[in-house]
Design a protein around this nucleic acid. Structure first.
Lengths: 184, 184
DNA sequence: CAGGCCATGTAAATCGTTACATGATTAT
DNA sequence: ATAATCATGTAACGATTTACATGGCCTG
C-alpha cells in the first residue's frame, strides 16, 4: 500500500487511488481495504487518526510510519515468480474444435473488441489521467514509473489485438480449406 | 473440462493433461479435480466407472455424457469479460520511485530472465510436446487450435521481454540525467 | 425524487492452495 | 536406499468477492 507514502489518506480515498491508476493490474475493494488497514496499524506500519465529522462516519486518516516505509521498500525489492494467470478465453480457443466456425469467431471477435476498447482507454483517458496526476502532484520521478506501467498495459493490449486479428484470419482460412463441419 | 471429450480419463490422467498443455493459462490440482468430478457426476455431465486394481486405489474412469457435451459447448460459446490479472511486478514498477536505481533494475532484470525462460520453454519443449500430441492423437483440427493458444503464449512473452528490455534502457538513461538519489 | 458521492464497516460465501494421509511398484 | 509414478482423497487455511447495513448531502 505504497500510496500512503505519497501522503495521508482515508480508506475511501485509497480505494479511489486504486481505481484510477492501477486498477487493471491490481484491484481492491473497500471490504478488503478496511480490515487490512487495521491489521497494518496493529503491525505498526501505519497510524490511524480519527477525525469526527457531523452527520457522517468519521474520517480515519492513515499515515505511513518509518517501519511501514521500510516494509514497503523491502517488498518492492523482493522479486516475484511469474503469476499464473487464468485466461478462460484461451481455453475456449484451445477447445475451439468443439464449436462451429462462426460460433468460435464470434467469441474471438468479442474478445478483440474488448481489448481494442481497453487499448483506447489506456491511450486516451488513461494517459490523460496520468498527465493530470503528474502535474497536480509534481512527482516527476514517480510519473516516469507510472508511465512505464501504462506503456506495459498498452503493449499487452496491442499484442492481444494483433493476436486476435491474426487468429480470426487463420480460422477463416483454415475453415475454408476444410469441409464444413458445423455441429461437433 | 473439455479434455474428457477427447476420451475417457481418470482424475489423475486429467491432471497430466492440464500440466502438459494448458498449465500456463489454466492450472488445476488434484484436490480440486476430484471433488469437481464428483459434482459433475451428480449433475449428470459425466459418468464415473470404477475399475478396481490390486494393491492400488481403484481407477475411476470418467466419461462425458451428451448433457456434458452440451454444457461444454454452451460454456465455450459464452464470451468472457477481460480477466483482471494481478501483476505484482507492475506495482513494484509503479512505485519504483521508492527504490534506488540498481535495486529496481535488479527486479526488472529478474523478471526479464523469467520471461525469457518461459519464451524458450514455449518455443522449444512446448512446441515439441504439441507436435507429439498432435501426431499421437491424430486430431488435426484440434491441433490447429492448440497451436493458436501456444502462439498467444509466445506473443505475450515476447511482449514482456521487449518491455523489460526497453524499461531497463529507459531507467538507466533517466537515472543518468537525474541527480543520484539513492535512499528515498 | 432518483441516483451518486461520501464514509464506514460486518458477515457469508466462494474459490484456490497447501498439508495431510495411504501404499505398492519401478527406476536410479 | 531414495525418489518418482500411479491413484485416490480429506481437512484446513487463506484469499477474494458479494451481500448486507447505515445515512445524510448534493446533482440532474
Amino acid at each position: 500500500m505504497g500510496f500512503l507514502n505519497y501522503g495521508p489518506l482515508t480508506g475511501y480515498e485509497l480505494k479511489q487511488g486504486f481505481d484510477d491508476s492501477i486498477s487493471h493490474f491490481w484491484n481492491a475493494n473497500l471490504s478488503q481495504i478496511y480490515p487490512t488497514l487495521k491489521e497494518m496499524e496493529r503491525e505498526g506500519l501505519i497510524t490511524i487518526q480519527v477525525e469526527p465529522q457531523e452527520a457522517r462516519p468519521p474520517r480515519k486518516v492513515c499515515r505511513i510510519t518509518d517501519a511501514g516505509r521500510e516494509e514497503l521498500r523491502r517488498w518492492l525489492r523482493t522479486p516475484d515468480d511469474l503469476p499464473a494467470n487464468r485466461v478462460p478465453f484461451l481455453i475456449k480457443i484451445f477447445f475451439g474444435g468443439n464449436l462451429a466456425r462462426e460460433e468460435l469467431l464470434d467469441v474471438v471477435r468479442h474478445h478483440l473488441e474488448l481489448h481494442r476498447e481497453r487499448l483506447e482507454a489506456y491511450r486516451g483517458p488513461g494517459r490523460a489521467a496520468l498527465d493530470r496526476w503528474a502535474s497536480a502532484t509534481g512527482l516527476q520521478r514517480e510519473a516516469f514509473y507510472w508511465e512505464l506501467t501504462l506503456e506495459a498495459g498498452v503493449k499487452f493490449e496491442q499484442a492481444w489485438v494483433e493476436w486476435c486479428e491474426e487468429a480470426i484470419k487463420r480460422i477463416e482460412a483454415m475453415e475454408a480449406d476444410t469441409h464444413e463441419n458445423p455441429g461437433r
